[in-house]
Amino acid sequence: MENKYSKIAFLATLFALISILVSCQSTVKYGDAGSATPVSTDFGSSDLQQIASTMVNSLMTFPPIVDATRNRRPILEVARVNNKTMQHIDTQSLTDSIVTKLLRSGKFRFTDKASNQETIDEIKNQQESGLYDQNTATQYGTNLAPEYLLVSNLSEIKQKQTNGGINVYYKFTMSLKNLKTGIIEWRDEKEIRKIQE
């Protein structure tokens, strides 16, 4: 009798284990886009999200910026991130996340230097194609100029540990420069350390 129960227990446990192994095996599925799980010591999506969140929170709560955005929405332009790491990183994706968050806060407005050529082409089309009512066509020279420039640097220090592991330190620095005065109005940095043992 005891042998029979033991056999049933053995089969039941084996079945449960196989079921769980099957459920945990490698399959293609949707994951959490906001996951903080590091995949490697390389610059990853969570690093990007942490940096974007930290920079936006810092900029929007810095007292002089709070004063500057209380009654108006300053116009900003973003400079390309100076990537000083040894990795190929889509730094525009990083600044895109920062710009999106700042825009959605309702405190800032942005110009987009990257789409200037398309803007010129469209205005030229409106002005010269003869298709458009000139009372509604956009005129040259009506765009508002940015008042501030967001400038940023990304650097890394990579060290091999004595036990063969890798220790990578990332530092992202961002500044807000007043274009008229040349004054740096705000600056902050975010540090991230990733260790692979």
């Binding site: 996951s35 903080a36 799980t37 590091p38 490697s40 010591t41 942490q50 930290t54 592991g165 902050d188 940095e189 975010k190 540090e191 991230i192 350390r193 990733k194 260790i195 692979q196 043992e197």
Partner: peptide, 16 residues
């Protein structure tokens, strides 16, 4: 709990 609490990669964030 972080998924990788006991895995080989650990995070250390320095406060600013």
């Amino acid at each position: 709990e972080a998924d990788d609490s006991d895995s080989v990669i650990k995070w250390r964030l320095k406060p600013l």
